[in-house]
Design a protein around this nucleic acid. Structure first.
Lengths: 143, 143, 143, 143
DNA sequence: TTTT
DNA sequence: TTTT
């Protein structure tokens, strides 16, 4: 059993890549969740990272933007990789089974993203790997 | 909303420290959770870190050992700290509201831990901070 | 372990009563949650009942209305009672630890409810018991 | 979002039927979950009903018995039906996506069930519908 | 690297 | 007794 439910706001636009073999979409974002305030305490916020795959990742790319409110159901996934300095970095992220869009922003923002420039998105990801994460290949897709 | 439920087995004995001011117990352990096997795939396991505070942490110290099965209900907490090399390390762990002991091991193992050597546990934690975590002080206790 | 998370819309205004002894508020509502649509299937919806106690119940009374979107974290509670015909009726409801207001409706709706007519709410509840539920007394409050 | 996690013990052996068209297995049981004891209060227990479909239902039939400990991940489903007296009965149950067996009982109990008598289980269910539930047909299977 |  |  490994079950997570989050409701929070995107800290930035989702970042989408594609697996090299099947070109499956992989979207990543992190979500801001304020902790319940302790009386007399200052605001504190958690920023868990979320990964989504496939059709849902494509919907995240199209409809989600920084600041939008989402509900996420998934599981905690841990991993590790070796960084440029040869140090082992441990990662913990939420792999989403389901992402729900809980608000739809202003009219402007709801419109689809500008069509990506030719040959941009469904191509081998050679932009480098984001800080703190490994490349994702087809064998990492959980379905 | 930030809700986590895990069922898994301790990867090692819980590690317990005490806050310097109120001497509240803080227990840490990580838990192994096998992912549902994909047909034709090999076994994969996640190892989320768990933190527990107060009375529950004391019970974890007394009754939990490596290999025991637990249910954990809590929330994801993120943080960061600067390591010895001056690099920023980001952390993600599960802060437990509730830890349930789902098996009690063999008769032998169920017995309490040998009493800690004098002045050992309820003392200022100066053993250093475990790899990948910050010191915990009273203001970090969530209740 | 008994953990529930729901996101859905109120099917009607919350119904609030008060325990006879300590006059603690008890709010009830049910929430509509659409099931993920099966391709070729028609829409289906679940309507779980939710109960909230104390301060949170008062906030529900003030700010929640039919149609508003909420996140609920809580547990499943079962019970039974004997109805007017002498038949045993079994109940299952969600006792909320936490209710989050995920939208705030139009400006008009966000305003507080009209002040209840004098001596209305914080009084012994003698309006009778709603269909399908038992009276709630102080010993039923979970904290 | 509609997410439930339970850990509890079966109150009786699971009850298994099969849909008339595709003969898919449908297992039902209820699970006892003690509430956290309030100091000075007496023990209280919830008994949510659980339904499982397909392969998992077959595993429940084979391996689960009264008293066994399970973890359940699923969602709350509500429904209604008309009983023999013409009264509308409202139902709330947990539809499981995943049932984990958290203990395996004594050696004896772990063995498979005696093979059902010829033509017993994979047949049209005409034993009547259990108290408080509707018949389940193929269109009710959630996958 | 953080959201309303 | 059902919500957008």
């Amino acid at each position: 059993m490994n079950n997570v439910v989050l409701i929070g706001r995107l800290t930035r636009d989702p970042e989408v890549r594609y697996t090299s073999e099947t070109q499956m979409a992989v979207a990543r974002f992190s979500v801001a969740i304020d902790r319940p305030v302790r009386s007399g305490g200052e605001k504190q916020t958690d920023f868990p990272n979320v990964v989504v795959f496939g059709k849902q990742a494509e919907n995240c790319e199209r409809f989600l933007r920084k600041g939008r409110l989402v509900g996420v159901q998934g599981r905690i996934q841990t991993g590790k990789y070796t960084n440029k300095d040869g140090a082992t970095v441990y990662t913990t992220e939420v792999v989403a089974n389901n992402v729900e869009f809980l608000d739809w922003g202003d009219r402007n923002e709801r419109s689809d993203r500008p069509a990506p420039q030719q040959a941009s998105s469904p191509q081998k990801d050679d932009m480098g790997i984001p800080e703190g994460f490994q490349a994702i290949e087809d064998e990492d897709i959980p379905f």
